[in-house]
Amino acid sequence: MQLMNIINALSLEVLQLQGDFNVEVRGGYTSDMLSDVLAHSREKNIWITFQTHQNVVAVAKLKDLAAVIFVNNRTPDEDTLKRAREENVILLRTADSAFGISGKLYGLIMPKD
């Protein structure tokens, strides 16, 4: 499913607009440990996390992730937003918990048995 359709379906708030909203999302990864995401996320995944600092942008860029969703309405600082604009990393936000949004995203994009 295209990222923009996921954003609409899950009513995600777009915090940073520079990037590819037409990208075909291939799954997601939920974690707050950066090395874990670096090792185990896959290209075009959506990353769901509580972390909002700048290093999140670097990891998302290095792994070619489709977007990052900040949970519990967490707000990144201005430096994070600026870096994401420079690196074309789309940042999203939800009021849901990591568990809640992971479940919704899974239900939306993962194939049903």
């Binding site: 707050d32 440990m33 950066l34 090395s35 874990d36 670096l38 090792a39 972390q51 600092h53 290093n55």
Partner: peptide, 14 residues
């Protein structure tokens, strides 16, 4: 901040 998983050097080697 999400560092310190103890995966850094093993990730490099891998």
């Amino acid at each position: 901040m999400g560092f310190g998983a103890g995966m850094g050097l093993p990730n490099i080697k891998k």
